[in-house]
Amino acid sequence: MAIRQIAYFCADVRAAAAAHHSAYGSGPFFVADNIPLARCVHRGVERPHDHSSAYGQWGEVMVEFVQQNNPGPSPFHDIYPEGSGRYGFHHVAVFVEDVDAALAAFEAQGAPCAMRAEMADGFVYAFADTSATLGHMTELYTPRPSLLGFYAMVADAAREGAPPRDLITTIRLR
Rank of each mutant, 00 (worst) to 15 (best):
residue 155 A to M: 14
residue 156 D to W: 08
residue 114 A to T: 01
residue 132 A to V: 05
residue 151 Y to L: 08
residue 108 A to Q: 11
residue 132 A to S: 14
residue 154 V to N: 08
residue 22 S to W: 01
residue 57 Q to R: 14
residue 115 M to H: 06
residue 96 V to P: 06
residue 86 R to M: 11
residue 61 V to M: 10
residue 63 V to R: 00
residue 125 Y to E: 05
residue 83 G to K: 13
residue 129 D to E: 08
residue 146 S to D: 14
residue 42 H to V: 12
residue 17 A to L: 02
residue 82 E to C: 10
residue 88 G to R: 11
residue 13 V to Y: 03
residue 155 A to Y: 02
residue 99 V to G: 09
residue 12 D to K: 01
residue 118 E to W: 11
residue 97 E to A: 15
residue 28 P to F: 04
residue 2 A to R: 13
residue 63 V to P: 04
residue 173 L to N: 12
residue 12 D to W: 03
residue 66 V to I: 15
residue 72 G to D: 04
residue 85 G to V: 08
residue 173 L to H: 14
residue 119 M to D: 04
residue 92 V to A: 11
residue 37 L to V: 11
residue 45 V to S: 10
residue 139 E to V: 00
residue 95 F to D: 15
residue 34 N to E: 10
residue 13 V to A: 02
residue 94 V to H: 05
residue 114 A to V: 03
residue 167 L to N: 03
residue 128 A to C: 03
residue 162 A to D: 09
residue 120 A to I: 13
residue 33 D to V: 01
residue 74 S to Y: 05
residue 112 P to K: 07
residue 123 F to Y: 15
residue 79 I to D: 01
residue 37 L to F: 13
residue 144 R to L: 10
residue 61 V to R: 14
residue 134 L to P: 02
residue 48 P to S: 05
residue 19 A to V: 05
residue 157 A to S: 15
residue 81 P to F: 11
residue 93 A to C: 15
residue 141 Y to G: 02
residue 56 G to W: 04
residue 128 A to I: 07
residue 134 L to R: 13
residue 128 A to Y: 09
residue 137 M to A: 05
residue 112 P to D: 02
residue 48 P to R: 09
residue 27 G to V: 05
residue 26 S to P: 00
residue 113 C to I: 00
residue 55 Y to P: 00
residue 106 F to Y: 15
residue 174 R to P: 12
residue 89 F to N: 02
residue 57 Q to D: 04
residue 165 R to K: 10
